[in-house]
Write a protein that binds this DNA or RNA. Sequence first.
DNA 1: GTCTATAATAAGATAGAC
DNA 2: GTCTATCTTATTATAGAC
Lengths: 217, 217
Amino acid sequence: MNANERILDMAEQLFAERGPARTSLRAITAAAEVNLASVHYYFGSKAGLIKAVFERRIKPMNAERLRRLEQLHQRHGEIIPLESLIEAFIAPALGLSRDPKHGGEYFIRILGRTYTDPSSPLEAYLQELHKDVAERFRTAFQSALPQLDHDELYWRLHFLVGTLAYCMSGSGTMRLIASSRLHNDTDTQQLVHRLAVFLRGGLTAATVPHPEQPHVS
Amino acid sequence: MNANERILDMAEQLFAERGPARTSLRAITAAAEVNLASVHYYFGSKAGLIKAVFERRIKPMNAERLRRLEQLHQRHGEIIPLESLIEAFIAPALGLSRDPKHGGEYFIRILGRTYTDPSSPLEAYLQELHKDVAERFRTAFQSALPQLDHDELYWRLHFLVGTLAYCMSGSGTMRLIASSRLHNDTDTQQLVHRLAVFLRGGLTAATVPHPEQPHVS
DNA sequence: GTCTATAATAAGATAGAC
DNA sequence: GTCTATCTTATTATAGAC
């Protein structure tokens, strides 16, 4: 394997463990058994490396999301069954860790964290990478959930992304609130299904007007 | 105001903006208009300061959660209505930003992020701070949702925390998937209510057996 | 308790040989 | 393309005067 890829692989792994900010180039190059200078040769800077690590996984992930969405539109027309739509969005994300070809065992944890890290220098870049997916799925969700007004849909999709991000971010804090026993049940298919059921429930919950503070706009 | 508190306040604010790892003590002491050495005098080290920043907000937050839980148990006995239970858990967290007395305008963003940051040196300490709340609320949720088995409850509470964490982490990436227009509707009461409706839908969603991969244990 | 000065370390970046 | 050696800067931490 070439140095370029080895660097990306080890950077990914170390970022997952300690976060990009706490991971030095020295640690990465040592793990990848390459020279410190090679990072700058291949990626220009640490920021360039970080960008490359994200790009390598996110582009195929979002391509898969759009492929699935396209397929669903062909089968169902404009209005896609909610459960299918949810799965088309979350499965490619959670599946990163599953498919050995994607090798994202570590990556999903990084990505999950990044979604709650607004201060990251990556923010604008990530937004750009997700723009197309965000737009198309929002439209599809609006069609599948015509009963929700624009604001309500906005917030619920926000909640959806949050739940997904937390799932992706891994098992560390996962045990904070829930059971402390370890789970072998990390099977991705199961998780996708469990999450999809939860999200469908949340997205379709009947809106009840706020008792004390009715909506005025 | 004394130096101790000024340091905590500015650290909190800067952590929210850039994250603890990317915030230097120099930046903090400059903003707080105190000497660099005073951080070590009061908190021993940067790690000590970070711990203090978290402790100051989390302890009252969790005390308020337990207070509300106690009150609900007195009113309803063992089985608390789900919606009340959800609100008792999320309102003190989201309310941090609201009540000026708590002054957590910045803090909730830090906390939200930390939940998806398993590599943080704080992890064990946070778990300790949350232990009591986690245990009591898990029991209460199990009573309110007897139809869910242990595993299913585990995951759904996990999803719940994830959604809450994302909400707390702030508006940065909040716009990735959803509308790009800015919202003035950041009113906390509204948000608590919106989130509670969503979570209730998710928590009570009927479990459907996984079609392709039935649960075998 | 507060401050200045400085130590000790670690980091990203680069020059230049091969 | 690859590597060694080094530069420059930034950071945490501490010693010691006041």
